[in-house]
């Protein structure tokens, strides 16, 4: 039976790991390669690196980081942030990433998803979606959550699947950084709607939150950052807890 995945996410800015609350107030959280190695040893099932660098110069550092991480880590990893062309995807994959994720770029150019998927395969095409509830509708946001669009989340997720996404990484901005649990209702609805796997992100604060996101939210993977970086929830303990409570995880 396929296991549920636990995925630490490393937000990268200028080569360092950072983490903020509600997309703001960035705090330094350590050397990404050191963290990546520790997570792989601790039993993380995958890693996600999100480059949140603001400038082009800072963004160029990602290739070198991908290269170093790939040399050391024996589990799959995804790289996202600022990816807007198939050329960049190729460069990241050639440096050793297994998957890439696109977010804002897919909104400006949805056919990019089809292009990447057909060139490199759906297995490496993750579409990241940041959304927030506005007047009872889940609205997709771009630019790290700064700009609202007029696009509705579930419609968008379906469209991404049709265009060749291999996986959806859904972050609830309402839950991100709050440690009050994942957006289980929206996740469950999305899971029933799509046939591709869904990574849940935003809101992880306790072991129970992960149990809920797999049971109620029907997510295929749970992603979190700060609770892992600051060792609030060690991954081996989290996985043992999930196993004891009937969730199939890799121990």
């Amino acid at each position: 039976m396929l296991t549920k995945r636990i995925i630490p996410c490393l937000d990268i800015k200028n080569g360092r790991t950072v983490k903020g609350v509600n997309f703001l107030n960035l705090v330094d959280a350590g050397d990404p390669i050191e963290l990546a190695r520790k997570y792989a040893e601790d039993g993380a099932d995958e890693l996600v690196f999100l480059d949140i660098s603001a400038t082009q110069e800072e963004r160029e550092t990602i290739y070198d980081l991908v290269h170093k991480v790939a040399a050391e880590i024996n589990i799959p990893f995804t790289v996202g942030g600022g990816i807007a062309s198939a050329d960049k995807v190729e460069k990241i994959l050639k440096n050793g990433a297994d998957k890439i994720s696109v977010n804002s770029a897919a909104i400006y150019n949805p056919l990019l998803v089809r292009e990447i998927s057909s060139l490199f395969g759906a297995q490496c095409m993750v579409v990241a979606i940041d959304a927030k509830r506005i007047h009872d509708k889940w609205i997709v946001h771009t630019h790290g959550g700064k700009k609202a669009t007029e696009i509705e989340l579930f419609h968008w997720a379906q469209k991404m699947e049709e265009l060749g996404a291999g996986e959806i990484l859904f972050t609830s901005m309402d839950h991100d950084g709050t440690k009050s649990g994942f957006a289980c209702e929206a996740l469950s609805y999305m899971s029933d709607l799509l046939t591709i796997p869904i990574i849940a992100s935003g809101g992880a604060g306790s072991e129970i939150d992960f149990l809920n996101v797999f049971n109620e939210g029907k997510a295929d993977a749970g992603l979190a950052a700060s609770i892992f970086h600051f060792n609030e929830i060690p991954i081996p303990e989290l996985k043992s807890f999930l196993k004891e409570n009937g969730v199939n995880v890799r121990l």
């Binding site: 039976m1 396929l2 296991t3 549920k4 995945r5 099932d45 759906a122 297995q123 291999g166 996986e167 799509l194 046939t195 591709i196 796997p197 295929d220 993977a221 890799r250």
Partner: peptide, 15 residues
């Protein structure tokens, strides 16, 4: 066959 209540791709750790 994704109609068989499984997600496709088969993605992740399996036995």
């Amino acid at each position: 066959d994704s109609s068989k209540d499984i997600k496709v791709p088969h993605m992740g750790w399996n036995r």
